[in-house]
Amino acid sequence: MEVTRRQALTAVAGAAVGAAGAVGAGRLAEHLGESTPLPFYGSPVSAVRPDRSAPSATAGSVVWGGPGGADGAGGAAGLRRVALTFDDGPHPEWTPRVLAALEAEDVPATFFCLGRNVRDHGDLHRASVGHHELGNHTFDHRDLGRLDWSACRDEIARTSGLMEKTYGSAPTLFRPPYGHLGGAAVLAAAEAGLTTVMWSAQAREDLVAGHPDRIVDDIASQVRPGSIVLAHDTGSEDRLVTIDRLRAIIGRLRSDGYSFVTVSELVAAGTAASSR
């Protein structure tokens, strides 16, 4: 009997999924030749459910910026807007410092929270609701590029459920740790009704080592209308370079003509412009 290429690949997939139980789905690539495709079902790169059932979402969205972010122009609406984002908190020492700087400058921001930190320090953001935006950054900051659909779904759902319980509403935005997205993570986020948010500018503390004040110019040099700026409110000590100069960064961007909005506001402006 002739075996079709699809049948052969499906057989390989089945064998690989079985192997995943022994070596882990995220390590499959290490055990397969580069000419052998990863499994159709069950691998981190697969954007279909492992049981082959229909997904509960028909579409999803991944964004890197808002209007004008691609070419540096002001966008259809001529808006010079930027969204500041902070990952990995809330942290009992760092997050209040960020919130204080934002309050002093009357600037909203978007915080992508870890579920475990919401569990331990959720009260830090109770006053943020309605002013700042709180997004999902998974529960344990695992690399979703190594996880299958079920594990990605659990990381996302566990965090959204806890955030809804803590803050009274579920998040609508999601950012994958490390910026790593496989098909399984894209599908899990879409099924959870979350917009996946990446970034188009970032705090590059490693590039200003020894000259911390240069972080202001470095961030300003990256920002364009529609930029989503990545920073952190916990982590390695060098990230304090940005936190300690947050007001100066805001002042510099304002002097360059930018105003500040949340990610959802930034994305909504693009949606409204494209619908005209």
Rank of each mutant, 00 (worst) to 15 (best):
I250N: 07
W64R: 02
P212M: 04
P212Y: 13
P37M: 04
A54V: 06
S200N: 09
V48I: 09
M163R: 02
S264V: 05
R254I: 04
A22W: 13
A25F: 00
A157K: 07
A22M: 13
V118D: 15
F40P: 15
L134T: 07
M1P: 10
P177Q: 12
A13P: 12
L162K: 06
T195F: 07
L187T: 03
T36F: 05
P44Y: 01
L144A: 09
A231D: 09
A73E: 10
D213C: 01
L230V: 03
V17P: 13
D106P: 04
R175G: 08
H180F: 04
V208K: 02
A47F: 07
Q222F: 02
N117M: 12
V63M: 12
L99Q: 07
P177V: 02
S128R: 12
A104D: 10
Q222H: 09
M163A: 01
A272M: 00
Y178A: 15
G24Q: 08
M163H: 03
E205N: 08
W199R: 02
T166D: 04
A11G: 15
W64G: 14
A201Y: 02
I243W: 10
A189V: 03
R119M: 09
D143C: 05
L173N: 05
M163N: 03
R252N: 09
G68F: 00
G257H: 06
A220S: 12
L147D: 01
L194M: 13
T4L: 08
D218E: 15
A184N: 11
V261T: 02
Q202M: 07
T110F: 03
R252Y: 12
M1A: 08
R224F: 10
A73M: 12
G66M: 03
W94G: 06
A189T: 00
T36D: 11
S169L: 12
T195N: 08
G115Q: 06
S169E: 15
D217C: 04
V45G: 14
T95H: 00
L28I: 02
H180T: 15
A268K: 04
P92R: 12
T271S: 00
L253M: 06
P55S: 04
H141I: 00
L147R: 05
G72T: 14
W64F: 15
A209C: 11
A104K: 09
L162Y: 09
Q202C: 15
G60N: 01
E105R: 13
R224Q: 15
S275Y: 00
S255Y: 09
I156W: 07
R245G: 01
S227Q: 09
G251N: 11
G24T: 01
R49W: 11
S255K: 14
T172G: 11
C113E: 07
H137K: 08
A22L: 15
L266R: 00
E105Q: 14
A185E: 10
H180M: 11
D233Q: 14
V82Y: 06
A47Y: 01
L266D: 10
T196D: 06
G130F: 03
S227K: 01
L79I: 00
D148P: 11
A273V: 00
V229H: 03
F86E: 04
D154R: 01
D148M: 03
D143N: 08
L187D: 02
V17R: 11
G183E: 08
Q222Y: 07
P55N: 03
D120Y: 05
T10K: 12
A22S: 14
G33K: 10
A231G: 04
T159G: 10
L230W: 00
R49D: 00
T262R: 07
L147F: 04
T95G: 01
